[in-house]
């Protein structure tokens, strides 16, 4: 009975390949909880993306209509050309650097691949590969974040400030929130690498790697949405 309560209360089903412990659904508590949490995150990002879309539409409508406060909010000393282009095109596309962001997206997609390979390594008991893939994932994630910092500074110089315009507020909030999630994932990845070096991240804990992976892939999926909805459908 002692084992039974520990198993039910705290310990996840170690791995699908091993004999599992009793759960009513057959999916471990941890994994079920992670999926529920991610389900809730869908609503969070859904609201943020909707807010962005609405704000962008309202911003462009007012900008094209020549609302002086909206025009002033996006203008600085040097960007008259850019603002004019946005007005004539009725689009925020002149602001974006699509090739650069495409590269960022590629990097984040790649990090999903390395993450899943890390999980594969740990299920096979290949701890050296686990550390290699985890470190690669972390490196790619950090590169993505560096790209975001670079992008934010560029946009800021181009005249898109946080408090100046509705577009700026909505854009930085949405992408910044995603960035915060990536940062959270980086902390988790760093912890996994540390634990692996200490020999605490072995085959029977593959699920811990998988859970971090679920979170990481979810963050990647959100970027898939943001990339298309924010950057490509300008």
């Amino acid at each position: 009975m002692a084992e039974a309560i520990i198993d039910q209360a705290a310990t996840p089903v170690a791995d699908e390949h091993h004999e599992g412990h009793y759960t009513s659904l057959g999916l471990s508590n941890m994994k079920l909880a992670m999926w529920l949490f991610l389900g809730s995150e869908v609503l969070l990002f859904g609201a943020l993306i909707s807010t962005y879309l609405l704000s962008k539409t309202r911003f462009l409508t007012e900008l094209v209509a020549g609302n002086p406060e909206v025009v002033a909010g996006i203008s600085n000393d040097e960007n008259a050309e850019l603002v004019n282009e946005m007005i004539t095109k009725g689009s925020v596309e002149p602001l974006f650097d699509i090739p650069f962001t495409s590269l960022s997206s590629f990097i984040l997609l790649m990090s999903s691949l390395t993450m899943v390979l890390a999980h594969k390594s740990v299920t096979e008991g290949n701890y050296k590969n686990l550390r290699i893939w985890l470190s690669t994932t972390m490196l790619l994630g950090a590169t993505f974040m560096a790209g975001q910092v670079y992008e934010f500074t560029t946009f800021y110089r181009e005249g898109l400030t946080y408090d100046g315009s509705l577009l700026g507020t909505a854009f930085y909030t949405l992408t910044g929130f995603h960035g915060a999630h990536v940062t959270g994932g980086l902390i988790m990845l760093g912890s996994l690498i540390y634990l692996s070096f200490k020999g605490r991240m072995q085959k029977d804990r593959a699920e811990t790697v998988e859970l971090v992976g679920l979170y990481w892939h979810f963050v990647d999926i959100v970027w898939v949405l943001i990339f298309t909805i924010v950057y490509l459908i300008h």
Binding site: M1, A2, E3, A4, D7, Q8, V13, E16, H17, H18, E19, G20, H21, Y22, T23, S24, L25, G26, H119, K120, T123
Partner: peptide, 20 residues
């Protein structure tokens, strides 16, 4: 023994099958 009894109700999946 009780622990085993609980284990018997296990609805886990067949072990041989490669899921991933």
């Amino acid at each position: 023994t009780e622990s085993m009894a609980v284990g018997d109700h296990s609805t886990t999946h067949d072990d041989d099958h490669e899921h991933h």
